[in-house]
Amino acid sequence: MPRVFLPPALRSLAGGQESLEMPGSTVREILAELERRHPGVQAGLCQGDGLRPGLAVCVGGAVSTLGLLQPVGPDDEVHFLPAIGGG
């Protein structure tokens, strides 16, 4: 099952856990399930039907360009991180 890592600011909503297993085959599905189990998480990560501005999702070690639509494999880790730019 995919493992989703929570930003520290949200961990209190999930009993202080750093990460937890969460079913779903896309980031959107995983977030919906996460919100169902731990209400409030989605408000911290999403705005409208996308991720919050400045936030990126990293799935399976790669920063996704698909955001919430990104497919998630059964062994993938899901991380929410600041979007990276560069010089």
């Binding site: 929570l6 930003p7 520290p8 600011a9 949200l10 409030g40 408000a43 911290g44 990560l45 936030l55 929410f80 600041p82």
Partner: peptide, 11 residues
């Protein structure tokens, strides 16, 4: 005047 602290992952 319009800046409030935004925390990563917090509403």
């Amino acid at each position: 005047d319009d800046v409030r602290t935004e925390s990563l992952g917090a509403a």
